[in-house]
Design a protein around this nucleic acid. Structure first.
Lengths: 402, 402
DNA sequence: CTAATTTGTAAATCGGCATGACGAAATAGC
DNA sequence: GCTATTTCGTCATGCCGATTTACAAATTAG
């Protein structure tokens, strides 16, 4: 069960997994759990009609889920309609929990989320990690994780997995950081440096942010583009409720989409990449500011104060983003574009020019652009919830308390 | 079964379809059929070990497939190894057939492909369709279809579905042509104008071309970008063996990716779109040629003759394509980029500058670019095979001869 | 208070795959 | 050539899981 949590799609008919009765049972357990979680307290009969199985079948499935501690009987429903009232079922608040962790450039954070989706424990530590080597940073993170775990265990939860968000590119093995420029890490397997015992997943924070938006955003569709800017500018592509990762796991590198093919040279080898117009450094330079620790906060502050240089820099960045997103929208035809992560704080000054550029260039089929409600919380929540989803998707694999 | 044939991915655990024993049976039938089709003649035991079921289970599945006329017993295998030789099974050459049709700008084509993947009947009619209204064109096409169907029926095949490739954008209902500029069609439901009786799917020819590449191309991976140029420049995005269609079904509009944001105005409302540098008209103009009927053929001919103007125009188009593809590759991280359709004829003159531009701009992670072996045959074959795939994916739904 | 309706469960049934055993058909070893 | 061995395909049997049917329990409608 260390397999990459929450990959986009199950194997097709050509897949190699045999289709046996145990598999059917497992999938049906997942369906019951999903239904109860998604639509609040539900009776067995209600679940049965939702997922298309008979009441009898659902009964045995529910029994098994209750015995495993994943489902809970809340007692008889208040009867409003005719007929015997059902017994309300809810996802347990005391079963497995998803551990999410975030390695930020200037902070570490950990949280535990239960199956219901509520955050039950959390810990944050401020402090610049830029340039520190992985070992001490992850030792601190491990300490925070232990705190959160004991806190969660006091409430009857047990960790079902750990998902770590990092500001960098992660290999498809979901453990190795290929490069994280803002930390100075490269080709580091985080596995040995983090607590073992629970399955581990490491991923780009932009990806987790997008998943958070998918699972927790209000009304976010199953097909969208999630743009964030932590390391350079990353876009996560969500297709049919799953993340598009790419062959090497590098999908979503919006930062190096060419905006002006003859523009200034970029470290990537190209010219006029988006990053040179809308990247943090570029915007700071255009605004006439010196790089600082809390770069985004600085920009937002100055812009709010009315600093015309900063505002113009952000407007221009928005325009460049609009050009790059035009390409992406043409290619992917997403339902919406969502600005998330740190970017959401700058949205008020980026959005107008961005929308302008995008809608002008995609006259016929304008794609709405919105701002994530989750903001900088996204990656951490997405990480924790990715574990929760893994449990919901295959409860049999995570059950305890037989 | 009129549902869009061959959508990318099955519903996840949240899906609404109940998971019952019949469903399991159906999936296992598909697995057996897929295994036999993919790996040549196979004994029951070999199938069993391939797909992870027992010999006994496979036996009953095979019986059912033989009774349905989808599988055929070829007789005992030549024994090379110790032990009783198995009885070779092969996909039937006399079961259901996929009908593929193509509405081209200057031709109509129809073919029938059996489950084995071999084309068993075909019909082509040359003739310019530019500007003709849908009804007479589809009447002609229907005539061709009838020819192919009677020809196929003479060989013991029966049509399992009809897939039509058109040079234009198709709505997600897979029946309505939203706009096909080169034909002059817009918002036309093709359903009533085509033979009923078999399930119908209409799709963009670029999409079918990409599927053909996926299914018939040699060594093509499950994640790639397929670029063709029939109407403007279309790219089909194949992710994990499925087509990415987009919310409105318009994904892959590479033609309007901005290449030079301040370039000349485009009909789409933008500026400097790829189409203005690598579109047919633009290239013809840059080469100093007049638009002609067989535009691609003209270009290829002149380039082969050594016409320096044409070659330069194609080189420049390749460069522009490279810029646009840099964006796409950064965003999607595909395993390869494949040039298909009519474009493959121009590849010798496009490729060098295209590769140059693309590899320079994506220094670290160069993405290989190749040319489709199928060429202009792609869309028609892809259409027919999409029907065949639908049968392979759910044989129970298409079985006859109970 | 009775009829109707809905829920949850228990018993019987059915469908589908696994298991184990067996005959059939080949090779390997003597 | 004969026997042992291996592999294939097919039974009979059993298990697992969902369905069907029936029924008691709990509510509303009249």
């Amino acid at each position: 069960m260390t397999a990459p949590l929450h990959e986009a799609r199950p194997a097709g008919p050509g897949g190699a997994l045999p289709d046996t009765q145990q598999g059917m049972r497992r999938r049906n357990l997942a369906r019951v759990l999903h239904a109860v979680r998604a639509e609040g307290p539900l009776s067995r009969a209600a679940v049965a009609s939702r997922i298309g199985l008979t009441r009898a079948a659902v009964s045995t499935l529910v029994d098994e889920l209750i015995r495993s501690g994943l489902l809970e009987e809340l007692g008889p429903e208040r009867p409003g309609r005719v007929g015997r009232p059902g017994s309300a079922l809810a996802v347990s608040g005391r079963g497995p929990a998803g551990l999410g962790a975030e390695v930020g450039v200037d902070h570490l954070a950990v949280c535990a989320v239960d199956l219901r989706g509520t955050t039950r424990a959390r810990a944050i530590r401020q402090g610049a990690n830029r340039g520190r080597s992985p070992r001490p940073v992850l030792a601190e993170l491990t300490e925070l994780i232990r705190q959160v775990v004991t806190e969660a265990e006091a409430e009857g939860l047990y960790p079902a997995g750990l998902a770590v968000a990092v500001p960098g590119l992660v290999a498809r093995d979901a453990r190795t950081v290929v490069r994280a420029p803002n930390l100075g890490w490269h080709d580091t397997d985080l596995g040995p440096l983090l607590p073992s015992g629970t399955p581990l997943t490491v991923d780009n924070e932009a990806n987790f942010g997008a998943l958070a938006e998918l699972w927790l955003g209000d009304g976010t569709p199953r097909d969208f583009l999630h743009v964030s800017a932590e390391i350079g500018i990353g876009a996560a592509v969500v297709v049919d409720g799953g993340l598009l990762r790419g062959t090497r796991g590098f999908a979503g590198e919006l930062g190096h989409v060419p905006v002006r093919p003859d523009g200034p040279e970029c470290a990537c080898g190209g010219r006029g990449c988006l990053e040179q117009y809308a990247g943090e450094e570029a915007v700071l330079r255009a605004a006439g500011l010196e790089p600082d620790e809390d770069r985004v906060g600085l920009l937002a502050g100055r812009a709010a104060e009315g600093d015309e240089d900063v505002r113009r820099a952000l407007r221009d960045a928005g325009t460049a983003l609009g050009v790059a997103l035009t390409g992406a929208v043409n290619l992917l035809d997403p339902e919406t574009v969502v600005l998330g992560g740190e970017l959401s704080g700058l949205a008020p000054w980026l959005l107008p020019s961005l929308r302008d550029e995008l809608t002008r260039r995609t006259a016929g089929s304008a794609c709405p652009v919105s701002v994530s409600r989750l903001g900088p919380e996204g990656p951490l929540l997405g990480a924790a919830h990715s574990v929760v989803r893994a449990v919901l998707d295959d409860p049999a694999a995570f059950a305890r308390r037989a």
